[in-house]
Amino acid sequence: MHANVLKYFVEVARCSSIRKAAQNLYVASSAVNRQILKLEAEMGTELFDRLPNGIRLNAAGERMLQHIRATLNDFHLMRSELDDLKGERKGHVSVVAMDSLFVDFLPATVEEFSDAYPAVTYSIAAVPPHDVPTRLVSGEYDVGITYITKLPAGLDVVTEVSLPPGVVMASSHPLAKAERISFDECRNHAFLRLEGRSPIQGVVTTDFPEYWESLHPSVTCNSTTLLKRLIASGRGISFFSKLAFLDELARGDVVWRPLDDVNVNALTVGIITPNQRALPHVTLEFVERIVRRLRHVELALRDA
Rank of each mutant, 00 (worst) to 15 (best):
R235E: 13
S214D: 08
M43S: 09
L155D: 03
D49T: 15
E210T: 08
R193Q: 06
P52H: 02
G144R: 02
S138P: 07
I237Q: 02
R289I: 12
L192G: 01
A31R: 11
H296E: 15
P199F: 05
Y141T: 00
S123M: 09
H130T: 12
G154R: 00
L136E: 02
E179F: 07
F240D: 11
T71Y: 13
H92E: 11
L230I: 05
R193C: 05
D142G: 09
Y26I: 10
A126N: 02
S16M: 15
P274F: 00
G61F: 09
A300S: 14
N73K: 01
V262L: 15
E81P: 02
E185F: 05
R302L: 11
R193W: 01
E112H: 10
L25D: 04
L151Q: 04
E40L: 05
V110W: 07
V297A: 11
E111G: 05
L215W: 04
K90I: 05
V219Y: 04
L230D: 10
V96K: 04
T206A: 15
V137F: 00
E160Y: 14
R79I: 06
S123F: 06
Q201T: 14
H67R: 15
C221Y: 01
F240R: 11
S172G: 12
C186T: 03
L227Q: 02
L77M: 08
T109H: 14
D184A: 06
F240N: 09
D184V: 05
S223I: 02
A31M: 11
D99W: 06
S218E: 14
P129F: 10
A176M: 03
N53V: 12
I237A: 03
V103A: 12
T149M: 10
V110E: 07
M1L: 11
D99M: 13
Q23N: 14
M43Y: 12
V168P: 06
E298L: 03
Y211N: 06
E112T: 09
S100N: 13
G166A: 11
H189S: 05
L47Q: 00
D131G: 08
I36Q: 01
N265W: 10
L47Y: 01
D207S: 13
E11Q: 08
A266P: 08
L243G: 00
R63T: 12
